[in-house]
Design a binder for these strands. Structure first.
Length: 455
DNA sequence: AGATATGAGGTGATTGGGGC
DNA sequence: GCCCCAATCACCTCATATCT
């Protein structure tokens, strides 16, 4: 054998053998590609980490070279907690992570585990959820093979499981809390990130049966994800605008105003779409899809011809009805100013921040800042002073409690040890760890010994 | 009827910072 | 690690006015 190898080497064959590219990580293929149940980026990261017996955080920081702290050059690639599910959307992070993962595992289809290919076409408005959603029945079925999270579950408009027709869950059945982070240390597929419980059990969240419109939007998201995960070519903005123009002119019989009435919007809005100034949000794409009979997936990713437009079902009874946008209210700025001034003048504790005040006044904080910069400045200064003082005030209060507790324990006939005092004060660490507080405790004990309250 | 401009109102993405 | 607050930027929709 060895002799044979030497002969091969001697024959100078090594330079002619081409080895396929290698990576230190398994070439784990994403699940469900080409179907509506295509795996999401966040799910893939978790599954890749589990397959290598490392935590998600270790995989992210070491393999993907994405720093979680601001101590490296790549820290910006790490999404903040609560924004991790945006990795499944159209953000730049989604695009970059898709490329990084594809390079790491040599799986080119990973760029289709999020909606980054629709970047520049679909506005990010109300596209991806901020929290985790799942179908408990799907999770139970997945247990037999591999547990993963389809991209559809991350979508804002997907509120129903297309397979089981039940509302997607968003609250853990055990701890009753939402899951807000996909890349935390404890992120395990099918389990709660907070309490670790299995999510594949029914959870009564008080959600009623899905409405026809919710069923419709979910069906459209299903179509869109199927197209994106199976398509070879990236969707093109010019094709999407061409399709939009065909639909507007065909459905409205050549009249933009008529089309605007059909989808319940303003003609100026349609004018901007037609003039390619902006593309409709997904909400409006659903409406356009409903009145034209063209799936959202086709509208965004394929070439549509006027003959494909099917208006035969539009307008019949039982048609899903979109939720009308609320009429814009007129803000009474005089009244807002008056209430804002009152809030700034009173000495409320704890001092509310601008966001809280804005919520109380029922207006956006940014509008408050634009309209009343002086009042906002006053509020900000008051907050700064209050929150600077707060740690000192808490420290002072704790000092008093330690002194009282030392005396109380001693009076009960026990030695007021540091841990005993800490436990009596219900300190989470079970000890007095702060050096300054330790000194207070020592002084209190010394004072007691001097007065011979205890022996 | 359609195009264009503009301001108001609304929302999401992103960044920076800090408390517990 | 997780959560919250504040700020900024960018984008979208709506409503209205004006012009062709």
């Amino acid at each position: 054998m060895l002799k044979h190898l030497i002969e091969v080497t001697n024959d100078d064959m090594i330079g002619q053998v081409s080895l396929p590219p290698r990576t230190p990580y398994y070439g784990l293929p994403p699940i469900g590609m080409g179907t509506w149940a295509a795996e999401s980026t966040t799910s893939y990261v978790a599954r890749l980490a589990a397959n290598h017996c490392i935590s998600v955080i270790d995989l992210v920081t070491n393999a993907l070279d994405v720093r979680t702290r601001r101590d490296g050059t790549h820290w910006k690639l790490f999404p903040r907690q609560g924004e991790t599910f945006k990795l499944n959307g159209v953000s730049t992070l989604a695009m970059e992570w898709g490329h990084k993962l594809a390079n790491l595992t040599l799986q080119p289809s990973l760029s289709k585990t999020n909606l980054a290919s629709l970047r520049g076409i679909l506005p990010s408005t109300r596209l991806v959820r901020n929290t985790r959603a799942w179908c408990h029945l799907c999770l139970c079925e997945m247990q037999e093979n591999a547990v993963y999270e389809p991209l559809l579950w991350s979508m804002h408009h997907a509120v129903v499981c297309p397979e089981h027709h039940v509302p997607l869950s968003t609250i853990c059945p055990s701890c009753k809390a939402p899951n807000t982070a996909a890349l935390s240390q404890r992120y395990t597929l099918g389990h709660c990130t907070r309490c670790g419980s299995w999510l594949g059990i029914s959870n009564a969240e008080g959600k009623g049966p899905p409405t026809q419109w919710e069923e419709w939007t979910t069906l459209q998201m299903k179509s869109l994800i199927s197209v994106i995960s199976s398509s070879e070519n990236a969707p093109s903005i010019s094709v999407a605008y061409d399709n939009l123009e065909i639909l507007i002119l065909t459905v409205g019989n050549g009249r933009m105003t008529r089309f605007a009435q059909e989808i319940d919007t303003d003609k100026s809005t349609c004018s901007m779409w037609l003039n390619r100034k902006n593309f409709p949000t997904l909400d409006y794409c659903f409406r356009i899809s409903l009145v034209s009979g063209i799936d959202v997936g086709k509208l965004l990713c394929s070439v549509v011809s006027p003959s494909e437009i099917d208006r035969s079902t539009w307008g019949r009874d039982g048609q899903p009805q979109w939720v009308k946008r609320p009429v814009r209210r007129k803000i009474d700025w005089e009244s807002v100013k008056k209430n804002f001034e009152e809030i700034c003048q009173n000495n409320e504790t704890p001092s509310p921040g601008l966001r809280r005040v804005a919520k109380r006044l029922e207006v956006d904080g940014r509008l408050l800042k634009e309209r009343f910069p002086d009042l906002c400045g006053r509020l900000a200064r008051r907050n700064t002073i209050f929150w600077e003082k707060r740690p000192a005030q808490r420290h002072e209060a704790l000092k008093k409690r330690i002194r009282r507790m030392v005396i109380k324990i001693a009076k009960n006939g026990y030695r007021p040890t540091r841990r005993r005092v800490a436990r009596a004060l219900d300190l989470t660490s079970g000890d007095i760890t702060d050096k300054r507080l330790q000194k207070i405790w020592r002084d209190s004990v010394a004072k007691l010994q001097a007065s011979q309250v205890f022996c």
